[in-house]
């Protein structure tokens, strides 16, 4: 097969440039293969984060021709043969070096979400009954591989830099996984509204578009959470009902 040109970001937070590398393309090659080939033969210090190379761990996130992608699941032959393929780091996070970004902020957000709390067991042996139809909804959210591509593409973080105010789609998915868990009894709507900043999401769905696990982030996770927040905090009628019920 033909030689392809890869235009790769090399540098740090302070300075960097796009460098062209020529790579012999083989059948079925993915962008991560090309980066490995560059490492092995041309630039051993090219920084790339990766693990499983099978789309299961979500480590190799970057932007290919400007679109957030897992480089291990992006086929080289998806792009026109005569054009260079540009590979740049995720923009919503500070670059450490080359294609590797500092995603530690995400792990701090994860620590702040009120954790899973199960109701007391249904049976003396400590077990519960959960039926097949009840697990599907939460299982969709539990498919999340924490690649942070949704965080990267979300304009609230990417463009507006609201990292301090907004938890981002990935952790709204996490919160939804807890919230819709049949056993969970924790109340998270105050957290979602105030610290999580769910109101910053203007449901423009870029997160859903980039999700490599095809999680319907906006429709199935964020909007249902927004509705829960409305029920708890915004709906004046329900507030009244709750007040009357209390008396």
């Amino acid at each position: 097969m033909a030689e392809r040109v890869f235009r790769v970001f090399r540098g740090t937070r302070e300075r960097g440039e796009l460098v062209d590398y020529r790579v012999e393309a083989s059948e079925g090659m993915v962008v991560l293969d090309a980066l490995h080939s560059i490492q092995a033969r041309q630039a051993p210090d090219l920084a790339v984060r990766w693990n499983c190379k099978a789309g299961k761990c979500g480590s190799c996130s970057a932007e290919v021709n400007g679109s957030p992608r897992l480089t291990c699941m992006t086929r080289v032959d998806d792009f026109p043969a005569n054009e260079p393929i540009t590979v740049t780091p995720m923009q919503a996070f500070p670059v450490i070096k080359d294609l590797v970004t500092d995603v530690s902020w995400n792990y701090e957000v994860a620590r702040r979400i009120p954790p899973f709390r199960a109701r007391s067991p249904d049976f003396p042996d400590g077990s519960w009954r959960i039926y097949p139809y009840e697990v599907e909804r939460a299982q969709e959210f539990r498919k999340c591989i924490e690649c942070f591509l949704c965080q990267d593409v979300c304009h609230v973080l990417r463009t507006h830099g609201k990292h301090a105010e907004f938890m981002g789609p990935a952790f709204l998915v996490r919160a939804a996984a807890y919230e819709t868990h049949p056993l969970d009894v924790e109340e998270r709507s105050s957290y979602l509204k105030d610290e999580g900043g769910i109101g910053y999401c203007n449901i423009t769905k870029c997160c859903t578009e980039v999700c490599p696990e095809s999680i319907q982030i906006t429709d199935n996770a964020i909007i249902p959470l927004k509705e829960r927040v409305v029920t708890r905090h915004y709906d004046p009628l329900l507030k009244l009902v709750r007040r009357i019920a209390r008396h």
Partner: peptide, 11 residues
């Protein structure tokens, strides 16, 4: 939080 490589940022 400071966003990423400023030279790549869509401004």
């Amino acid at each position: 939080m400071q966003a990423s490589a400023t030279l790549l940022q869509e401004r």
